[in-house]
Every structure is written in structure tokens, then in C-alpha cells.
């Protein structure tokens, strides 16, 4: 049994974390959920996650700042942005800052799972999820 993918999910919408935790655990991820960007950053500071999933528009700290922080602290970590405010300019900005992917809300659990699988593959630790199925 290979080591589980360590995933951090940050969204100020509590339901997102509540649902994503079981959804991602099912495909072999070890998920930590945060609603507060600050506590998430504290956690990121002390632990290297494989994948960080973050909302962009949050009070206090913006998802882009989280992305910057992760990119600086753990260059290897893949960051996936999820946002309800998806626009071309925002998407390009996130990609330029080094995001692994950018997903517009609303998305299905499988949409994110597919992205996680892709990221796992990019990390060299493929997981058992059919990335091509739609």
C-alpha cells in the first residue's frame, strides 16, 4: 500500500470541506479541511501537502495569497484553485502564479477527483482513478 496523498482543502464554505473530505478519501487521499485561511496557512507552514485545494475569494486572505505562499514554501506541492468567480483574467493570473489547475464552481466531485488524479500522476504517484472518463 503506497503512502496516501496528503491533501488540504481550504474553502470558507463549510459544506465544500464536508463533502470533499469523503469524496477524496475514497480515492486514497488523506484530507485535512480548513475554513479559515489563516489556520490553513499555519498548517501548510508546518506540513508539506502533496495537493492544496483552495477557494480564491475569501474574507481576510485571498486564495491567490495562499497559492503564492504554497509555491514559495513547498514548490513541489500542486495547488488547485476552485472559485465561483471564474473569469478568464483570474484563471490566467492563477496559472501564471503556478497553479496546477483552475476549476470553476459549481463542479462535480468527479471533476475534482480527475484533477487530483492528474496531479498525482504529475507528482509521480498515480492513483487509481480513470482520468479520461467523463
Amino acid at each position: 500500500m503506497p503512502e496516501k496523498l496528503k491533501v488540504l482543502v481550504l474553502d470558507d464554505e463549510p459544506i465544500v470541506g464536508k463533502r470533499l473530505k469523503p469524496a477524496l478519501s475514497k480515492i486514497g487521499c488523506e484530507v485535512e479541511v480548513f475554513e479559515e485561511p489563516k489556520s490553513a496557512l499555519t498548517r501548510i507552514e508546518e506540513k508539506e501537502f502533496d495537493i492544496v485545494v483552495t477557494d480564491i475569494r475569501m474574507d481576510e486572505i485571498d486564495g491567490m495569497e495562499v497559492l503564492d505562499y504554497v509555491a514559495k514554501r513547498w514548490p513541489r506541492t500542486k495547488v488547485v484553485m476552485i472559485t465561483g468567480y471564474a473569469m478568464m483574467a483570474l484563471a490566467r493570473e492563477a496559472m501564471e502564479k503556478g497553479a496546477f489547475d483552475f476549476i470553476a464552481k459549481p463542479f462535480k466531485p468527479d471533476d475534482l477527483r480527475r484533477v487530483i488524479a492528474k496531479a498525482a500522476k504529475a507528482l509521480g504517484r498515480p492513483i487509481d482513478f480513470d482520468t479520461d472518463s467523463k
Binding site: 478568464m88 484563471a91 490566467r92 501564471e96 503556478g98 497553479a99 489547475d101 483552475f102 480527475r114 484533477v115
Partner: peptide, 14 residues
């Protein structure tokens, strides 16, 4: 080659 032109789930969906 800029990263901002990399395809992503969102842009592919668009």
C-alpha cells in the same frame, strides 16, 4: 509558453 496560457479544467470547459 507563458504559464497563463496553459489549459486547465476551467478553460477546457469554457
Amino acid at each position: 509558453k507563458y504559464k497563463k496560457f496553459k489549459p486547465m479544467t476551467y478553460s477546457i470547459k469554457c
